[in-house]
Nucleic acid binder design. Structure first.
Lengths: 208, 208, 208, 208
DNA sequence: CATGAATGAGCGTTCATTCAT
DNA sequence: CATGAATGAACGCTCATTCAT
């Protein structure tokens, strides 16, 4: 059973993703969530706080998502990288709305809460990459030591850009498949591509 | 001498970049441009049209930017790719506001004018890459034939992401240089990185 | 107890009557009705819709006003005509604001709602006159068969014109009576005059 | 040759008639008259003064229109009445725009100039009617002595009302004639009708 | 008896929020 | 952990007019 609060949250997420924070009115959200306008201020305090709550909600939902990957011993460092990419790509694909919001936030944001969330996430990634890279280098699995921020920019940037431009590329590729099938192919190809880049960047050789 | 119209245009660009279209009021723009509110409608017709005019203005400004690269005979196909990356990176660096606006537009946009501009630009890039790749493959300069859209996503995505996250990375890198100097290093490193990725993707070997 | 909505409606009616639709601002209405400006959009949606609502309100109020006259059997056809004139004159006198608005609307109007209301009213009158005239002719009460539209123009036109010019005529007649008393005399005389004209037009003789 | 000033005046007249004073913007007038917006204030001082000038212009054009009728000796008093009605009806028919404006003004007006014009016109009519009635009674041409203001209201009211409702009646009469022909018939019938009413009111018998 | 740029006030409307229940 | 009415501020825009030339 979905709560009234989550109902509002999800309606807001969709609208914020589509039209941005300022472009979305609480009237629209209320209508989409099928609740009275005053409910939003009532539940969340304000439009701003609803926004923050939403980010918080999604962050909590996925915050432990790759923490434990680091500590796993059943897979090697490259496989850990693969897992991270898989997980991240999966999220970008299936939490499209939320990641759209986060991307828009990276373009400005004055909200200190969101800035914090963003920094935290980014630093989380960077620290994971660092640790794996260090370990992999030590073990000789990786042979190159690229700046982490470039590695991160490449993975996240390519993933986001390709995700956003999907519709345009679809048109360009003259694709006629239905949504789900095209998506599968698209994200698989994208995923492989990113891993290919990472192998090069890290100097990882598959069958060594 | 800067005209009143351009004055408005540039003030608007900065604000739109910072706060988005809906987040910026014509009152703010008028104040920033030091003109009367009614001037915006007077010169441009409406806030929306000002926005479109701005995009048009920047697009025109840079529209011939790499068309002639294709036809040059004094440089080989790889050098053409390098030129495109250099130019593009230069723009993203120095027209930060405009590219911020365009990135935000990629996250939704209902405005058909902007959609058109975006498509046009993207297709322009893709067509350029295609031609150079084809030519380079024929000549044996390139040895791989990656999907153009992935190549494009990687270049644009990495560039944009790194550009947006600059301040965060700067902090992470504990940099104490002044703005200009850090920027130089940052974009040089970024540029080299992207070219490195492209060499790998295209199978180009420098001193063959 | 008068509702806030009616409060706005009546304030608007007075102002629209005095200054026309375009000549009246919602700020004036709000001030006159002693409510916040935003209440107009809140209650009615827009200034235009408030206007339409007002017309609708007054029309509904008086819509059954003479429908049943036709079916009465206790009075003859001439007396029916008299009743209609009495009722109509009473309305014009006591709903001065509304009829002022409607007269102004007859001078142009683009609003399809209002056009419809006007047509409806006019056709209602014409149909009533037609039926009574036909019946009266059959019974020999009336001996003439004038074009209905001329009959209607005479009644409505004379009534409206005299009503509008009342103040000027009052001055001309050097009248010193107080408002209410002058009004009584004025409208009584006017009423008698119109009936006199109708008798002539219909060929009705009182004591036949 | 039509002057630029008259050009503006006539464009304004048409628009004021259609949409009222407040409903018409000087931008519209300027566009219709094919002149620069600032010309209106330049020529006439203000929108208000343009309006007054227009009324003045039309009043002057027709002010002596029936003054000399009174002094004529070649026609009797009834024929004088007929001439007045003919002239008035002709004006209402052919100066439709101007009379529309004047009717609208009768419904309110704050402008003292216009109030004066209206009063002047009305009093002119009333005085003419008075003199002719007095003379006709003395000579025995008229046998009744109705209140002048009722006589005037009937003539003007019927004429105006019928003129305004023409399109609606046209529809009602299922008329298929072309504009000009229907107009001829309509105004002839209307004119005859008004004279018929006047004969009754004045107690005039044609072939006595 | 001209012109086009520019102005500030005011327009109708919508906004996020709060109040009374 | 509810509701619907009501609010004042701000929105984008148009208005009649004026200014500089």
């Amino acid at each position: 059973m979905i709560s009234k609060e989550e109902n509002i949250l999800f309606a807001a997420e969709k609208l914020f993703a589509e039209k941005g924070f300022e472009g979305t009115s609480i009237r629209e959200i209320a209508k989409a969530a099928n609740v009275n306008i005053s409910m939003i201020s009532y539940y969340f305090g304000s439009k701003e706080k609803l926004y923050e709550k939403l980010v918080e909600y999604r962050m909590n939902e996925g915050q432990f998502f790759s923490k434990d990957i680091l500590e796993r011993t059943d897979i090697n460092d490259w496989e850990k990288i693969e897992k991270i990419v898989d997980q991240f790509a999966g999220k970008v694909r299936h939490q499209k709305c939320f990641y759209r919001i986060m991307q828009r936030e990276q373009l400005h944001t004055q909200n200190p809460h969101i800035v914090d969330f963003l920094k935290q996430t980014k630093m989380g990634f960077i620290s994971m990459y660092s640790k794996i890279l260090e370990s992999g280098l030590k073990k000789g699995i990786f042979t190159k030591n690229p700046p982490i921020y470039l590695l991160h920019s490449t993975v996240s940037g390519t993933l986001f850009y390709a995700s956003n431009a999907k519709e345009m590329y679809k048109e360009f590729l003259n694709n006629t498949d239905e949504e789900e099938i095209f998506d599968d192919t698209y994200y698989t190809e994208l995923n492989t591509h990113i891993k290919y880049l990472l192998k090069d960047l890290l100097g990882y050789e598959e069958n060594k």
